[in-house]
Simulated scan of single mutants.
Amino acid sequence: MAMSTARTPDRPMRADARRNYERLVGEARTSFAEHGTDASLEDIARQAEVGIGTLYRHFPNRHALMNAVFQEALASLLARSHELAEAEQPCRALVEWLGAIVTHAGEYRGLAQALMSASGDTTSALAQCNVPLRQAGARLLARAQASGSVRADVSIDDLLQLTNAIALAAEQTPSDPGLADRLLMLTLQGLKSGAAAPGPRGD
């Protein structure tokens, strides 16, 4: 996942610019859901009844537009992390939250791959989505580790990459709707403090 704003002006938008912005985000959300995150930006602009130049004035690239589209989902994921912060079983709470990310990523074909590709690019607007997600996940992970239920060598960055990989695997195997849940259960087993840490390659 990633998600902060696509491009924040130094001053408030004019009413017409705000309408164009909102139309573009709405049409992008529909197009990404129907056609995947590689949907044509020209088609999105046309459906929003604006020129492609207007789209690029608001969103300098595809990742900036994706970032804007996923703000609502980001808010939901962050709210869920707060709800799970007091769960009785911190390890299961962490995995449940990771599962919510998988579910969100599954709503848009290509999102998981885009998030994985953007994770190492600090200049990407989409990578900025990962900042609040990483912070929220790190809090859940730290609580689970403090309880002794999760291994100390687990990092939130690895978990988010693993979560995106699970979402991508599920996307590419639509004939197996239970795949993501099974992979998440394997993740749960691997996170537990009694699980053996992986040895050097070849062991």
Rank of each mutant, 00 (worst) to 15 (best):
E86S: 13
A105W: 02
R92E: 03
N61Y: 13
L78A: 00
L55W: 13
F59E: 00
E49H: 15
F70P: 02
S40C: 08
A73I: 08
A48M: 03
N61I: 15
H58M: 08
L74R: 14
G110N: 09
E42K: 14
A48D: 00
Q71G: 11
L84H: 15
F59R: 00
E72T: 15
L94Q: 07
H82S: 04
S76A: 11
A64R: 13
A105M: 03
A45I: 12
E107T: 15
M66W: 09
A64I: 09
V102D: 02
R80S: 03
R80Q: 04
L78F: 07
E42Y: 14
L41C: 06
R57M: 05
G53C: 01
A105I: 07
P90T: 00
A87L: 00
M66C: 08
L78E: 00
R109Q: 01
V50R: 08
H82R: 14
A112H: 12
R92A: 05
A48S: 11
C91N: 06
L41W: 11
I101A: 06
N61M: 03
A93I: 04
A85R: 15
R46F: 14
E72C: 09
G53E: 06
R92D: 04
N61T: 12
E107F: 10
Q89V: 11
G99D: 02
E83S: 15
A68L: 03
L111M: 05
L98N: 07
L41D: 01
A73G: 12
I101E: 01
A45S: 12
L111K: 11
Q71P: 10
E96K: 11
L41I: 14
V95R: 01
A105N: 07
D43V: 14
T54A: 11
L74A: 05
V102I: 12
P90V: 06
H82N: 01
A68R: 05
L94S: 06
N67D: 00
T103M: 03
R92H: 09
R57C: 02
N67G: 13
S76P: 09
V69E: 00
E107L: 08
V95G: 00
G99S: 04
E86P: 13
A64C: 07
A45D: 03
R57H: 12
L94I: 07
N67F: 08
A73K: 12
A45W: 14
S76Q: 06
I52N: 02
H63N: 00
F70K: 04
P60V: 12
D43W: 14
E96A: 07
L84Y: 15
A93Y: 07
E49S: 07
G110A: 06
A68S: 01
G53T: 15
E86G: 06
A64W: 11
V102C: 08
F70A: 01
A75H: 15
T103H: 05
A100V: 11
S81Q: 01
E107P: 14
G110V: 03
A87M: 03
P90R: 05
V50T: 10
V102Y: 08
L78Q: 06
E83H: 15
E83V: 15
P90W: 06
L111R: 15
A73W: 08
S40D: 04
L74P: 09
V50K: 10
L55D: 01
L94M: 08
